[in-house]
Amino acid sequence: MKVFVDQDKCCGAGTCVMLAPDVFDQRDEDGIVVLLDGQPSEGLHPIVREAANVCPAGAITVSDNA
């Protein structure tokens, strides 16, 4: 799995960090998403997919072709 984030789209709601703090973080100055781990281990795949699904701004995409 490969994870991509779009900081321009992000609205800083923080749901991804709440769900998967090992994969996502937020910039201190404005809460915008920071990707910590672009290729998370398999055990994290379901929660990362959920984070992408509930991201209100559509700022997280997940690709399984990797």
């Binding site: 923080g14 960090v17 937020q26 404005d30 915008i32």
Partner: peptide
């Protein structure tokens, strides 16, 4: 909207909360 919202997001990050 994004310009103004981003001015007030910092105190609401998961870590700060």
């Amino acid at each position: 909207h994004a310009r103004l919202r981003r001015m007030v997001t910092a105190p609401f990050t998961i870590k700060r909360i």
